[in-house]
């Protein structure tokens, strides 16, 4: 569950509000440009491989109304992008640390529940 309180702004114009954990306060603020800013904020540069996964979690959220933890993220990735990419090692290589959290954040979703 993302915190509704404003902690800081993502952009210099102070338009895009982030909560204390860095998730968007307003999900509606999200677009691809915002995703790039969010990624830059954690020193990631988004490639097409990253974007494929962002679409996977956004589709997951659209269908199930929750951001996925690792286990369902791996499964959803496998279903959408095939066996090769549907592995935690692959997800870790693109979103090091906690792929479910970083993906949810960059994809403009609330923080995944049930997640380390």
């Amino acid at each position: 569950m993302s915190d509704e309180s404003l902690y800081r702004y993502l952009d210099a114009d102070e338009q895009i509000k982030l909560d204390p954990e860095g998730y968007l306060v307003e999900q509606g603020d999200w677009d691809e440009g915002v995703a790039d800013l969010l990624a830059k904020d954690e020193e990631l540069t988004l490639t097409e491989e990253h974007w494929e996964l962002i679409r996977v979690v956004r589709d997951f959220y659209a269908r199930y109304e929750m951001a996925p933890a690792m286990r369902p993220l791996v499964k959803a990735t496998k279903q959408a992008l095939g066996e090769e990419k549907g592995r935690s090692v692959y997800l870790m290589s693109l979103f090091p640390g906690s792929p479910p959290k970083r993906l949810a954040r960059i994809a403009g979703l609330p923080k995944p529940t049930n997640c380390l």
Binding site: R63, Y64, E65, M66, P68, A69, R71, K75
Partner: peptide, 11 residues
């Protein structure tokens, strides 16, 4: 229902 549908994604 979305959560019920999601259960299979958690095996």
């Amino acid at each position: 229902l979305p959560t019920i549908d999601m259960l299979e994604m958690y095996d």
